[in-house]
Amino acid sequence: MKLFNKQYSQPGTKPGTISQSDEVNYTVSLIDYNKTNIVDHTVLELATCRDFIENTNITWIHVQGNPSAEAMITLAKGLNIHELHIEDILNNGQRPKVEINEDQIFLILNLPLSDEGVTKIEQVSLFITKNTLISFCSGSFMPFENVIERLMANVGKIRKLPADYLMYSLIDTTIDYGFPLLEAYAETIQEIEDELLNTRDRAILTRIHALRKEVLLVRRRIWPHRDLIADILREEENSVISKNTILHMKDCYDHVESIKDTLESYHEMTQGLMEFYLTSVSLKLNDVIKFLTIFTTVFIPPTFIVGIYGMNFDSSISPFNMPELGWKYGYITVLGLMAISITGMLIFFKKRQWI
């Protein structure tokens, strides 16, 4: 389970110091568009992207993977991106946040993904000015294919509205990736519930604990998105965000609330599964103890009888020394007495509903 992948600077490092990544593997794509025309460049060097920013079109630059510090510094110089933002982009695992200035906005989002049962969280960073949006996504998975398809097909409002609407589309897409993860959690919870009804395998407790921990961590990483969007909704006068986009951001807020509430429910359900497992194990243990107790109790009277008649006092010395030892039917009588005592105790237990 991959939930955190953050590179920490050494204690005492100057703020804004960019960490060098051990793995440099990234691609850069650029889409330059307006209402009527669109140009798509699939692979570019970061230094050449500055040539497209000078025009009046909307320019979307997307960096996928782990760029080098040198490449990020080159891009930052052309776009006036602060060194602290560059540090946040390169050091994955940041808490979702938004920093709104008069002419630019910087956001960090967490992208939850489920890959063959393994949950991982990638970081999405957005930097937007009036006509330019730069997005960064760690890892190899490209989450914005549907947005690109809408742009290329000129479907919806993206091509007709400013760059802030493109920002909204990317935020909405990132948040909506939480819903498939919720479906995966729901299936896992249902599967564990079915197994609990059929077995008491100790391995189930390990699965429940791992699932509960995973839901808790994802919930903690998704929760700050609500505050992030709330900060954007409070912006009334900003040259980057239009009132129309703020209205659409309310839909993102509703999605975050839905995901947060569902994760909260799943967290409680996993806690319930753990309690159900422990209760079922306790009930099984009680049944075992109950059976052993009844078994022991039933054989106490016969053991008592056998103990008495195992003393073997000679009846010829005294008439009080076990006269039954010389009785013709003594052995059969003692066996019958033991059988009667066992049967009587079983009937007594049955009437008291102990068995």
Rank of each mutant, 00 (worst) to 15 (best):
V63N: 03
V63P: 01
V63T: 07
A69Q: 11
E70I: 06
I73C: 04
L75N: 08
A76S: 14
A76L: 06
A76P: 06
K77T: 14
G78P: 00
I81T: 06
I81W: 03
H85K: 04
I86G: 00
I86Q: 13
E87I: 08
N91L: 08
N92M: 09
G93L: 13
Q94M: 10
R95T: 07
K97Y: 05
V98I: 13
V98H: 05
V98N: 03
I105C: 09
L109F: 13
N110I: 06
N110T: 08
N110H: 12
P112Q: 04
P112F: 06
P112W: 03
L113N: 07
S114R: 00
D115T: 11
I121Y: 04
Q123Y: 04
Q123N: 09
S125Q: 15
S125D: 09
L126C: 10
T132M: 13
T132K: 04
I134R: 00
S135M: 05
F136R: 01
F136K: 02
C137L: 01
C137R: 03
S138P: 05
S140P: 04
S140D: 14
S140F: 00
F141M: 06
F141T: 11
M142D: 15
P143G: 03
F144C: 07
E145M: 11
V147S: 01
V147E: 02
E149W: 00
